[in-house]
């Protein structure tokens, strides 16, 4: 880093290449549940490290400097993604994941569960529990009586719950 500050392009290039690996691991660990792209963040961080290289003071440790910038870039990206939400440090990844349950793991789990159901049950459950139609609307869409919809949805939920809890055992 010090050689890079002094204008040694080859040293700076080696440094950035090595850091890219560390940063990739750092972001990957923190982004498993987020919609952000790890490689984008690695590049953002490398860019910041290079452009702000003058702010590293060799009297202090280098690693904390790098990861402070990496974390700043991570939070910055999460903030942009989340719009108005301002996110505190470590919990950033967790909070974002909960704020957007439609995205990522939750969504995928839901789809894989629904995929196991017969077509009629699947579309009913999706209408009522995911899309938010009322029982009556769902009945009309499916061409069934309201009572039949209620019973089917109830049975389907029961079946899903049983399957999920069997899996957990």
């Amino acid at each position: 880093m010090v050689a890079g500050q002094a204008g040694d392009a080859a040293a700076q290039s080696r440094l950035l290449t090595e850091l890219a690996g560390h940063l990739r691991a750092y972001f990957a660990r923190r982004l498993s549940r987020s919609a952000l792209d790890v490689e984008d963040l690695v590049q953002e961080a490398l860019l910041a490290i290079h452009l702000k290289r003058a702010t590293y003071d060799p009297r202090f440790d280098f690693t904390p400097w790098v990861f402070a910038i990496a974390r700043y870039k991570l939070i910055d990206q999460l903030r942009r993604l989340g719009g108005r939400v301002s996110v505190p440090l470590e919990d950033a990844g967790e909070l974002m994941a909960e704020a957007n349950p439609e995205e990522g793991v939750v969504r995928r789990d839901l789809e894989s569960l629904l995929a196991r159901l017969p077509a009629r049950q699947r579309s009913l459950l999706r209408d009522v529990k995911v899309e938010g139609y009322s029982m009556a609307e769902a009945a009309e869409r499916a061409g069934m009586s309201v009572t039949a919809v209620k019973v089917t949805v109830h049975r389907t939920m029961k079946r899903l719950m049983k399957e999920v809890s069997d899996e957990d055992l």
Binding site: G4, Q5, A6, G7, D8, A9, A10, Q12, S13, L16, T17, A20, E39, V42, Q43, L46, L47, H50, R53, A54, T55, Y56, D57, P58
Partner: peptide, 18 residues
């Protein structure tokens, strides 16, 4: 990312004052 590093260090590797 490797291209980015090449581009960055080629475009600007000026010595900087700490």
């Amino acid at each position: 990312t490797s291209d980015l590093i090449v581009a960055l260090t080629a475009a600007d590797a000026r010595p900087v004052r700490q």
